[in-house]
Every structure is written in C-alpha cells, then in structure tokens.
Computed example of a mutant assay.
Amino acid sequence: MSSQQSSETDSAFTFDDLAVVMGTYNEEDAIATVLEDIDSVTDGRAEVVCVDGSSDRTPEIAREHGATVIEQEPQGYGVAVRAAVLAPERPVVVTTDCDDTYPMERLPDFLAEINDGADVVSGDRLYYGAEEMPGLNKLGNELFALLASVAMGKRVHDTTTGMRAYRRGLLHQIRWTENTGLSAELLMRPLMRGYDVRERPIEYDERKGETKLDPFEGGAAIAKSILKVAFEERLR
C-alpha cells in the first residue's frame, strides 16, 4: 500500500470528493451529452473541469452546464489533459473524453475501486471488443498495449484509454512529460512505481464529431512515448 493510499482510505470517498476532467477541442456536438450524463450519475455533486482550446461553442456549452472552463491555446492533447488533471482540489480525479464515447454510468464503480484501495483505475475499452472503434484505431491500441507490456515487463490491456480514476496525490507526485502519449504515460509511470493500478472493462461507444488525431503521426508519437517512459522508469 502506498503512503498516500494509507492516508486517504480512512473514510470512503463520495461524489462530493470527485472531479471529472477533460481536455476539450471543438466538441460542441457531444459536450452537452457528456456533462448531462456526469450530472445525472453523480446527482450534480461532482466537480467538472474542462481545459479548452476550441473555436466553436464548446466552452459556452460547458459553462452553461456548470463546468469550470480553463481556456488554453491549442497545444495538443497532453498539454490540455495535464492541466485538467492537476487543476482540481478534490481527492479523486477521473479523466474522460468529451466525445461521448465513455460510459459515465461507470463512475460509481471507479469510485468504489478507489475506496477499495486502488491508486489508479483504468478503463479497458478493448475487453468487450470495442466494435464501435475504427479498425485501424483498434489495431493500433492493441499494438500500443503489447508494446507497453513488453517494455515494462508488466501486462496491460489498454494503454491509451481516456477514462481513468486517480488519487489526486499521485497526479501531483509524478512529473508528467508527454503530449500525444500522455494517456499511456498516466498508466505506465504509476504502474512501474508500484502503485495499485487496476484495469477494468468498460463499454466504448461511437464518437460524436470528427476525430482530431492523425492515426499515423499520432500513433508514432504514442509509440515513441511508450518506449521513452518505460526506459526512464527502468532507470529510476
């Protein structure tokens, strides 16, 4: 058990201790649905933070639904998500994407895992087949998981999922360096440092709106990040 885990498990966390965060970029087609789902599942008790670089109505819609919006010049996925995960004061932070692909109804399950002692709970999109995911993306995600597993010497199943729960202390104890590959880094560094990291199957839905990531350029950046992070952690 990590030291932060032992100090944070004296009482059970509730939705009042939960922040749901995301980077947003031109997601006006989906953001309202995502925020309404979070509000419904948590009875409006979860804090929601969006780090936004949009040129459409995404930030206005987010504010209308009660989210805190941190405006940021577009600098890539990881820059936005890193700012998002470090912003809340609440002790449990859940990341999600703003394209309505992730099941917000699983928030109680993730919170229960944290209360059970987990430091990180990572949603495995591939467990159920991820039939709504484009074939090239699915293959890439399977290869990323294989690469990370070999590089770390620890089996993981979905390194690039956007839905995870973290203890806030962990997020501030580790220095995050990656941009496109941040999602893999957020899983790999805690795992290689001995934190209690659990992968749990989640459903994955078809995204609303257009994807912003080039599959080849983005895929190469993620693979590079996986190797870099594994190498750095092995040298610690």
Rank of each mutant, 00 (worst) to 15 (best):
100 D>R: 06
101 T>F: 02
149 S>I: 00
112 A>P: 12
22 M>Q: 08
216 F>W: 02
161 T>L: 05
227 L>M: 14
70 I>C: 07
179 N>A: 10
88 P>W: 06
189 R>P: 03
235 L>K: 10
9 T>W: 12
63 R>S: 07
108 P>K: 00
60 E>S: 13
113 E>F: 12
117 G>Y: 07
55 S>G: 12
222 I>H: 01
32 A>I: 04
149 S>Y: 00
8 E>F: 01
199 E>Q: 15
141 N>G: 11
149 S>A: 07
174 I>Y: 09
11 S>Y: 07
190 P>K: 01
223 A>V: 03
138 K>A: 06
33 T>D: 13
154 K>L: 06
104 M>R: 10
53 G>N: 09
98 C>L: 09
70 I>H: 13
216 F>S: 14
15 F>W: 14
208 K>G: 04
41 V>D: 00
79 V>Q: 15
43 D>K: 02
203 E>Y: 14
116 D>C: 13
19 A>P: 12
43 D>Y: 00
183 S>Y: 11
227 L>Q: 06
167 R>P: 07
97 D>H: 11
175 R>W: 08
31 I>M: 01
197 V>A: 07
158 D>S: 10
72 Q>M: 15
235 L>P: 01
119 D>Y: 06
166 Y>P: 02
119 D>Q: 08
177 T>M: 12
90 R>F: 11
71 E>G: 14
78 G>S: 14
213 L>I: 15
172 H>P: 03
10 D>T: 06
200 R>T: 14
24 T>R: 01
114 I>F: 05
124 D>M: 07
101 T>K: 02
100 D>L: 09
170 L>P: 01
28 E>S: 06
223 A>E: 06
226 I>L: 06
151 A>V: 05
79 V>I: 14
114 I>Q: 08
144 F>H: 10
73 E>L: 13
45 R>S: 04
148 A>D: 10
50 C>P: 02
228 K>C: 02
40 S>M: 05
184 A>L: 09
200 R>G: 05
71 E>Y: 02
86 L>Y: 04
76 G>Q: 09
35 L>Y: 03
229 V>K: 00
8 E>Y: 09
91 P>R: 01
15 F>P: 02
55 S>D: 15
108 P>I: 03
131 E>Y: 15
201 P>L: 01
177 T>D: 05
112 A>S: 15
181 G>C: 14
62 A>T: 08
59 P>H: 13
170 L>I: 12
133 M>H: 07
113 E>P: 03
137 N>H: 10
99 D>W: 00
109 D>C: 04
6 S>Y: 11
229 V>Q: 03
187 L>Y: 00
164 R>F: 05
61 I>T: 04
